[in-house]
């Protein structure tokens, strides 16, 4: 990865962080907790995080609260978001050379 990619990546990341900061407090809290959870379970997918912010901005603009939008079970929402993408557990399993389990398309 060249210097330019790193700089470009950082710029994008800080732009993303600024968008998160601009969200209403309830959205910001939920987003930050979600990000912590998503980073724990799987390889970071920044485009997914950007999509979530798009969605949250839309909901906030429509005057909805975050719970109205995604419900109380934030973890279930996260799990649905990453359904189909590999978790760390699956990455480990694949690299161990074992049979990949049924992923269920």
């Amino acid at each position: 990865m060249g210097i330019r990619d790193i700089v470009e990546g950082k710029k994008q990341w800080w732009a993303h962080v600024a968008r998160v900061k601009a969200l209403p407090p309830d959205y910001r809290i939920v987003y930050q907790e979600m990000q912590r959870y998503l980073f724990k379970i799987g390889p970071a997918d920044t485009s997914l995080l950007a999509d979530v912010v798009d969605f949250f901005e839309e909901g906030a603009a429509a005057g909805k609260g975050v719970r109205q939008l995604i419900g109380d079970d934030v973890a279930a929402f996260c799990d649905d978001l990453v359904k189909g993408s590999p978790t760390y557990a699956e990455v480990r399993r694949e690299s161990a050379g074992g049979e990949p389990g049924p992923t269920g398309k």
Binding site: I29, Y37, I41, R67, D72, A75, C78, A89
Partner: peptide, 19 residues
């Protein structure tokens, strides 16, 4: 994973309650 899930929902509930 289950523990993290519960932790996430608990944190959200607590922090949103704080608002």
């Amino acid at each position: 994973r289950d523990r993290w899930r519960e932790q996430l929902n608990r944190n959200v509930a607590r922090k949103l309650g704080g608002l």
